[in-house]
Design a protein around this nucleic acid. Structure first.
Lengths: 160, 160
DNA sequence: GTGCTTGCAAAGACTTTGCAAACTT
DNA sequence: AAGTTTGCAAAGTCTTTGCAAGCAC
């Protein structure tokens, strides 16, 4: 299921991102493109470090600093979403799909992060916050859980 | 509204914690007591660093390392709850009260963290997770919001 | 050419850890 | 006495930043 050529969707997203850069008076550089392309090598959630590795596969002039400097731009432009799993590092995920509110379900055994649509949660959080006189910027529901398959069998086929 | 003498509740909690320590073959030390007492000097949510400051007020032999070493014990014993606000440091809060599921509503202007009961969320997260074959350990709903009062008036009376 | 970008390495912020002395039980 | 705990400072981890050279526009 490897993706050989860049999909239409990816190219559209790239157009959006480079427009975003230009509109802010920022430059469209080879490194930024490398980092951008590396996003689509990622599988689900990834860290800055993982992104660096993949970006370097595509363009070995990419440095760690540039990855760290690009990530906020990718988040701001909406290409990437920051996923806060609490402990450990920051995780990111490509935000191709939806505007929907997502809950993160983190399996403590598999180390897998599931993203689950949870529109109801959004409504709920908003309602509560408005009662407090607050204007919601973003919300996250995070669930940490153990894998029952792992508990019973001692292993889990979701294990990466 | 300063609390001069340790309340019954605090003493009960201390008893629970020292029993917890003993049951694990750990020692009840002056520093651990100092850190424990400092918990009740904290106002709402606090960081390891803040706890260190207050613990040192009560017992100047308490070191940063001991605070960092104690916090996991306090969490494990249930005295303290870790509150993950995403960015920034780890926060903690005393867990005197409830077993209820709490949502954290973080005001980006006030820097205040509100804890809101959200029993429905708990049900929801559990339901979703069980469908995935996962056994929920804990969950958190975090809402980041802006203070409408701040936006309109340029200040906020909740500001600390 | 102007001024944003880059890599590098150093610096930062926060947390953990090795070790010998001190303390709890 | 035996084994846990402590403070200290050093080491770690992840992320940010200063700087001079290099690019995009």
């Amino acid at each position: 299921m490897a993706k050989r050529k860049k999909s239409k969707k990816v190219e559209e997203t790239w157009d959006g991102f480079s427009t975003f850069l230009t509109s802010k008076g920022l430059r469209v550089t080879g490194q930024r493109r490398g980092i951008f392309d590396a996003l689509f090598e990622e599988d689900g959630h990834f860290t800055a470090e993982q992104l660096l590795v993949h970006a370097r596969n595509l363009d070995d002039t990419v440095s760690r600093a540039t990855v760290y400097r690009s990530l906020p731009l990718l988040v701001e432009s909406g290409v990437v979403r920051e996923v806060d799993v609490g402990h450990d590092n920051k995780f990111y995920t490509v935000n191709l799909n939806s505007e929907n509110f997502k809950a993160q379900v983190v399996c403590l055994d598999c180390d897998t992060i599931y993203e689950v649509d949870a529109p109801f949660m959004e409504w709920y959080g908003k309602t509560v916050s408005e009662k407090l006189g607050l204007d919601v910027q973003d919300q996250r529901l995070q669930v940490r859980a153990e894998c029952t398959q792992f508990q019973h069998l001692g292993s889990c086929d979701r294990n990466k």
